[in-house]
């Protein structure tokens, strides 16, 4: 490839240097740079495509299904969903803490302090 097959020898030999060697090294280096960057971008673009599919399959599709379920007048199932959604204490704490942090940053005069958390 590119006329350089023995990778264990330097392309630029400073003991017997001539400008053609430098040009050869530059061409070879630029070729590997191009091939390498194209390969990296290609692999990651394929991953991007798969992650986009993830979004459709695991995020948007379940959201649509959930929306459809909400329309159906089955009160018991709605209650169950609500109950499940609010049993994660860690998530509630995170939401409250984030809200306080936002409020603190936007209105520096206001001060909040979390005293306790209670399950509702």
């Amino acid at each position: 490839m590119f006329g350089i097959e023995d990778y264990s020898k330097p392309i630029v030999d400073f003991a017997n240097f001539d400008i053609a060697q430098l040009g050869n090294a530059l061409l070879f280096g630029a070729s590997i740079l191009l091939i390498g960057m194209v390969t990296v971008f290609s692999v990651l673009c394929i991953l991007w495509l798969f992650l986009y599919l993830f979004k459709l399959l695991f995020h948007e599709l379940p959201a649509k299904r959930a929306a459809k379920k909400k329309v159906a007048p089955i009160i018991t199932s709605v209650d169950k969903t609500t109950e499940e959604a609010y049993t994660d204490d860690g998530e509630i704490v995170a939401v409250i803490a984030a809200a306080i942090a936002m409020a603190e940053s936007e209105h520096s005069g206001m001060k909040f302090r979390v005293v306790s958390f209670r399950k509702v």
Binding site: I4, Y7, S8, K9, P10, I11, V12, D13, F14, L22, A25, L26, F28, G29, A30, I32, L33, G36, M37, V40, F41, L44, C45, L47, W48, L51
Partner: peptide, 25 residues
């Protein structure tokens, strides 16, 4: 992901400069 890929520019650029300094590929 694209930003991660763009950050590999230094890897391949340094490869090219190392060749110019007389290192083997």
């Amino acid at each position: 992901l694209l930003m991660g890929a763009g950050s590999q520019l230094g890897v391949f650029a340094a490869f090219m400069f190392a060749l110019l300094l007389g290192f083997t590929p």
